[in-house]
Design a binder for these strands. Structure first.
Length: 106
DNA sequence: TTAGTGACGTCCC
DNA sequence: AGGGACGCCACTA
């Protein structure tokens, strides 16, 4: 059983209209302090054949990680999030206080 | 095997 | 608020 499988399982649990951070996913996947692995795990996921809502994962700043490696999927991510009702600030950030996923339902 | 890089986070300035 | 340095570990050359 790969640790990445746990990551995918966690991401799949993120409800529509909510987002989670890489660090949050890492912790939930029993990989505290290793958020980079989460990012790499999602990078390995095939966007088309996976049923994983990868677009609901953002960094701790509440922003989408823009990278040339993603070939524009970063812009797609923002579009998908906006389609789910998530609003972006003028600086392109998301209000985590309002949209961050709370597994334990504070 | 060593070195470099990265869908990130935390700390310090 | 914004930017730089360091740490983390898997993958690639």
């Amino acid at each position: 059983m790969s640790a990445y499988h746990e990551i995918y399982a966690i991401v799949r649990q993120i409800p529509v209209g909510k987002v989670a951070t890489y660090g949050q996913i890492a912790t939930l996947a029993n990989l505290p302090g290793k958020p980079r692995l989460v990012g790499y795990a999602l990078y390995r996921v095939d966007l088309k054949e996976s049923d994983i809502p990868w677009h609901r994962v953002v960094n701790a700043k509440g922003e989408i990680s823009f990278s040339s490696l993603r070939q524009g999927t970063d812009y797609l991510q923002r579009a998908l999030l906006e389609r789910e009702g998530i609003e972006f600030t003028s600086t392109g950030k998301i209000s985590l206080r309002q949209y961050q996923w709370q597994p334990e339902s504070v």
